[in-house]
């Protein structure tokens, strides 16, 4: 086992270390954090045969450039339509490749998407907070936001040539303009025609977008009264309406309680797709019942589980494939 060491040449804003998230501390004001797009993060790990929750790097459109200063390691990039430049070659994202000492690896915003995930066949060495490497962007706790000139170490780094190759992009990891939500819990605070408008109108994401939430454009929601509800628990995906009628969807690092009424909550599988939209992209909210929402999540989970199981199967490099064919040929000819 060896160590691969990197120098961070460039890190855009909100490039952070993440694992699957920090569960169980919401009662103390600590959100789960973790990847904005949990689906693509799981793909990036599975493509390397890593555990789905293994620590990786979330890359924003600001991009990330690493220089390998020691060792070698196989890595994967998945999520959004990001570009990868490594060892003098250009790839599309959604790829598994190996980086070696002296080579650079750049992950840059490309044709679509807002978040890409860079994972390694090894363990990313970083700070933990409350048992998790997930970075809480507001405080910087956890693995942390990456900064230029810092070093990054991958312990037990392996070259897994058998994993190298392209990853196909499943539909469930692409943005969708139909976003399923469950209405409430405070829909009663809104004018009835305002609620139906919310479902009829198209909203677009604005550039007021970070790991805590994204503000939407569209006609303003009308509250029945200028009310302040007592602060209450908030779930990731909540569509909250502030006093001025502005709409915001709360994301991975959102507060755990808040005093703004919520008109609806986005389902997790669709939230992963929605966060890959970019400012200006249009979404439309589609209401389902809570019962339908559970069925939706179960169906999606089964679909993704089956897809990831296929991806996890060992792949062979060209050399191994030839070797295997030669062996089989040899066995066949020996029997003759």
């Amino acid at each position: 086992m060896s160590t691969a060491r990197f120098r961070v040449v460039h890190a855009g804003p909100l490039v952070s270390i993440q694992d699957a998230g920090r569960i169980g501390h919401m009662r103390f004001g600590v959100p789960a954090s973790g990847p904005m797009d949990r689906t693509s993060f799981a793909i990036a790990n599975t493509a390397l045969a890593q555990p789905v929750e293994a620590t990786g790097i979330e890359v924003s459109p600001g991009g990330l450039t690493l220089e390998c200063v020691e060792g070698s390691v196989t890595y994967a990039v998945a999520g959004g339509g990001f570009g990868v430049v490594s060892g003098g070659s250009k790839f599309d994202g959604w790829t598994v490749a190996t980086i070696r000492e002296g080579e650079k690896l750049a992950v840059r915003g490309g044709s679509w998407g807002s978040w890409a995930y860079l994972t390694f066949a090894g363990e990313v060495v970083c700070d933990q907070w409350l048992g998790s490497a997930a970075t809480h962007s507001m405080s910087g706790f956890g693995g942390g936001l990456l900064q230029a000139e810092q070093t990054l170490e991958v312990r037990n780094a392996e070259v897994r040539e058998g994993r190298v190759g392209e990853i196909s992009v499943p539909d469930f990891a692409k943005p969708s303009d139909r976003v399923h939500v469950v209405t409430g819990p405070q829909d009663r605070h809104f004018e009835a025609d305002s609620v139906s408008e919310f479902f009829e109108q198209k909203s677009s994401l604005t550039d007021s977008y970070d790991r805590m939430g994204v503000r939407l454009d569209g006609s303003k929601m009308r509250l029945k009264e200028a009310l302040s509800i007592p602060s209450e628990p908030v779930l990731r995906g909540a569509v909250q309406v502030s006093g001025d009628g502005g709409v915001m969807v709360l994301l991975a690092d959102c507060g755990t309680t808040g005093g703004y009424p919520k008109i609806a909550t986005v389902l997790p599988d669709d939230l992963d797709r929605m966060v890959q939209c970019r400012p200006g992209d249009v979404v439309r909210f589609v209401a389902v019942s809570a019962e339908e929402a559970v069925e939706f999540t179960r169906k999606k989970s089964e679909e993704k589980r089956a897809w990831l199981a296929e991806l996890a199967k060992p792949r062979l490099s060209l050399g191994e494939k030839l070797l295997r064919e030669n062996l089989i040929d040899g066995m066949v000819s020996a029997r003759e």
């Binding site: 569960i23 919401m26 009662r27 007592p230 209450e232 559970v294 989970s301």
Partner: peptide, 20 residues
Amino acid sequence: EVIPALVNLLVIFDPLQTRH
């Protein structure tokens, strides 16, 4: 997990294991 607040509390569950 459970998030207690001022006048209400939210019980968060795994939808693959149970339902509302």
